[in-house]
């Protein structure tokens, strides 16, 4: 995936929220994040793919919860007390993403985002728009569109 023209045109700073999924660091644009909630049991959906955990009640809306690790083609999320759900909105769709833990809010420059290196895992590559190096740690920029519309990503 290469950066879009818009990304290069806007050299502005970008605020991202970083979180960990299956031990790896990822981040999402803070603009797309609605809220962060504690994990609570969900209602399973029939015939759902393995990365769809079920649906949850978010103040009267029924929103689907995705297991981000499974979406990225990694192992299922390691269950722990620190697991949280990141509620994101894209084009009017609201969904929850289960992640292991949320770390911090970072300011990055768009120029610092590097194109995704050529890797084998199709599921991972298609869910990532680029990578950022922060203090020697590599943070992967998650592509919200690819995460939310699974039909275009799976089957891997």
């Amino acid at each position: 995936m290469s950066m879009t023209a818009e990304d290069t045109a806007l050299q502005k700073d970008l605020e991202v929220v970083t979180f960990s999924v299956a031990g790896q660091s990822y981040c999402l644009d803070i603009q797309s994040i609605r809220e962060i909630r504690r994990w609570s049991p969900v209602t399973a959906l029939p015939h759902a793919p393995a990365d769809v955990l079920g649906v949850m009640n978010l103040r009267g809306s029924v929103i689907p919860i995705y297991d981000l690790a499974a979406r990225f083609g990694l192992d299922n999320i390691r269950q722990s007390e620190r697991n949280v759900i990141i509620v994101v909105a894209l084009e009017g769709n609201i969904v929850g993403l289960l992640v292991e833990a949320v770390s911090e809010v970072l300011s990055v420059s768009r120029a610092d985002i590097q194109p995704t290196p050529d890797i084998r895992s199709e599921a991972t590559r298609r869910c990532i728009t680029g990578v950022i190096s922060v203090n020697g740690d590599m943070i992967r920029m998650a592509d919200l569109k690819a995460v939310i519309h699974p039909q275009k990503v799976t089957p891997a």
């Binding site: 959906l45 649906v55 809306s61 029924v62 929103i63 769709n93 609201i94 969904v95």
Partner: peptide, 13 residues
């Protein structure tokens, strides 16, 4: 509450 808006069609539901 519709499921289709945020998720999609679920067979049987």
């Amino acid at each position: 509450k519709s499921l289709e808006g945020n998720y999609g069609v679920v067979p049987g539901i």
